[in-house]
Simulated assay, not measured.
Amino acid sequence: MLAIVAAIIFGLGFLLDLLNARIAAGISGTTFMLLGLTLLALHQAGIGTASFRGSTGGWRGRTRR
Rank of each mutant, 00 (worst) to 15 (best):
L40N: 07
F10L: 05
T30P: 00
D17K: 13
I4H: 10
H43L: 00
G29S: 07
T38F: 07
G48E: 04
G36F: 03
I23C: 12
L18G: 06
T30S: 11
T49H: 01
F52S: 04
I27M: 02
L16S: 14
L12I: 08
G48Y: 07
L39Q: 09
R22L: 04
I4G: 07
G57Y: 04
L18A: 09
L18K: 12
G13D: 03
W59G: 13
L35R: 06
L18D: 03
G48N: 09
S28L: 02
G48T: 08
A24D: 14
L39N: 06
F14C: 00
I4S: 12
T31W: 07
F10Y: 10
T38V: 13
A25E: 08
I47W: 08
I9G: 05
G11L: 09
A45V: 02
L37F: 07
G36M: 04
R22Y: 10
T30M: 10
L34A: 12
G57M: 04
L39P: 01
G48R: 10
T49E: 01
G57S: 05
T30W: 11
L15G: 13
I4C: 02
T38L: 11
I4N: 09
G26E: 07
L12Q: 08
G36A: 14
I23E: 15
L34S: 10
L19Q: 15
L34E: 05
H43G: 07
G54W: 06
T31G: 05
S51Y: 03
I23H: 12
F10S: 10
S55R: 15
F10M: 06
F32Y: 13
D17T: 10
L37M: 07
S51Q: 12
G13T: 01
V5R: 13
G29M: 06
H43T: 10
L37Q: 01
L40Y: 11
A50M: 00
I27T: 02
I27A: 02
T56A: 10
W59A: 15
A45S: 12
S55H: 13
I47E: 03
G13S: 06
G58A: 06
L39R: 07
T31N: 11
H43E: 11
G26V: 10
L15K: 13
G58P: 02
G36S: 11
L12S: 07
A7D: 06
I4F: 06
G57E: 01
S55W: 14
A6I: 12
L19F: 15
A24H: 11
L42T: 05
G57H: 06
M33F: 10
F32G: 05
I47M: 07
N20P: 02
I47K: 08
H43S: 13
Q44A: 14
I8E: 02
L35D: 04
S51T: 14
F52T: 03
F52C: 00
S55E: 13
F52G: 01
G46R: 09
L34C: 08
L37I: 06
A24M: 11
A6P: 05
G13W: 04
Q44T: 14
L15V: 14
N20Y: 15
I4M: 07
H43K: 12
A7E: 04
R53P: 01
G58F: 03
G58K: 07
L35M: 12
D17P: 00
N20R: 15
S51V: 13
L34Y: 13
V5G: 01
D17A: 13
G11M: 08
L35N: 08
L18M: 09
F14E: 03
F52L: 02
F32H: 11
